[in-house]
């Protein structure tokens, strides 16, 4: 073990899916900041999808990668088509160039059949017990980062100071082994620069004490950011004490550091139209397929604490999730960016 290991820390996020309304503000905030340059047109490092659904990229859960019994699993590198997006529209043709036949505003050229949020709000279930929930996804800052493990060039690394997985874009030669190995498929290929790219963990912001764009701009107040080992911080409490925050697809074995509070759902109706008070519209097996077997206890804990709140009892968990002060979501990154003076 290297000497610096003792000094290593891990930044983690907890995303409370019961607060996520699928508004895409995180996605737009991220894209507006980082993905404006050449070759990033179709890149959305942070995406939000409706679940159950095919996700981004399309059917990402069937694309392999990650580990099985600690052995890397062969995966597929998602393509631009799998992600969709990067659309250019015919604004000028519709508005200014003369359009007496009233052609509508459309993607120029071939019409898309998929996009970053194509199956939004379609969900699953049988009416009236239909259901869906929203899931934002970004780089998972994995403890056992399959992408780092995959890069033959050592172009990727996990930082000791915060565990963010970074890429040396100058070293990257676009082999896309990282994208094959990443089981979450959150690595994009820049077809202009011919390198892979992914969420940079908003390192320039973190280094200034400012919360990541996706977290700071989230109007639903659902993104907690902090150091996993900070026992006073919300992350540690939610992940390790209350155990209500779970990694997505733990079976991928990369030990992700983005955790999710699993979704509650409306009570379903019985065949006769009466309400099944004890039930949930989201099948437990679906939740388990996403968050692993720990999800059942997590849901039980959430329900117990919600009940407590309804009966007027105090609940430390509920208070934590309410996050009365916005900045409690990211206690170590509360700096207002406007307080920074650039040289």
């Amino acid at each position: 073990m290297s000497a610096s290991t003792t000094g290593t820390r891990q930044i983690a996020m907890v995303l409370d899916l019961n607060k996520c309304i699928g508004c895409q503000t995180c996605a737009v905030a991220c894209k507006s900041l980082w993905c404006k340059d050449e070759g990033t047109d179709y890149q959305w490092w942070c995406t939000v999808n409706t679940m159950p659904g095919r996700g981004t990229p399309k059917d990402y859960e069937e694309m392999g990668g990650g580990y099985k019994d600690s052995i890397p699993v062969r995966g597929i590198a998602p393509s631009r088509e799998d992600f969709g997006g990067g659309w250019k529209f015919n604004h000028s043709e519709v508005f200014f160039d003369g359009n007496p036949e009233h052609k509508p505003l459309r993607v120029a050229g071939e019409q898309p059949q998929w996009g970053p949020n194509w199956d939004e709000d379609q969900g699953a279930g049988e009416y009236p017990n239909s259901y869906f929930y929203y899931m934002p996804r970004l780089c998972n800052f994995c403890t056992h980062a399959a992408c780092v493990d995959a890069c033959p060039r050592g172009a990727m690394a996990k930082r000791s100071s915060d565990g963010i997985v970074v890429r040396d874009e100058d070293r990257c030669r676009g082999y896309q082994f990282c994208a094959e190995a990443c089981p979450y498929k959150k690595i994009y290929f820049n077809y202009e620069l011919k390198i892979s790219q992914h969420c940079i963990g908003c390192i320039p912001r973190l280094e200034q004490g400012v919360a990541p764009a996706c977290a700071r701009q989230c109007p639903g107040r659902l993104v907690f950011v902090g150091y996993l080992d900070d026992e006073d911080g919300p992350i540690h409490k939610l992940v390790n004490e209350w155990k209500v925050a779970l990694p997505l697809h733990p079976e991928y074995e990369t030990l992700p550091n983005v955790y999710y509070i699993p979704p509650l759902a409306p009570a379903p109706f019985n065949e006769d139209g009466s309400v099944n008070e004890a039930g949930s519209r989201i099948p437990p097996e679906h939740l388990e397929s996403q968050f692993g077997p720990g999800v059942h206890d997590a849901i039980d804990t959430l329900k117990t604490e919600v009940e407590k709140a309804r009966s007027g009892e105090a609940s430390g968990l509920m208070d934590l999730l309410i996050a009365y002060n916005w900045q409690d979501l990211f206690p170590d990154f509360t700096r207002d960016p406007i307080d920074i003076t650039w040289d």
């Binding site: 052995i71 890397p72 699993v73 062969r74 995966g75 399959a146 493990d149 995959a150 890069c151 033959p152 060039r153 050592g154 082994f177 094959e180 190995a181």
Partner: peptide, 14 residues
């Protein structure tokens, strides 16, 4: 001998 655990394992066959 590839300097990638992934390549070495995932492409062992195929």
């Amino acid at each position: 001998g590839q300097p990638s655990r992934y390549v070495a394992a995932a492409y062992q066959s195929g």
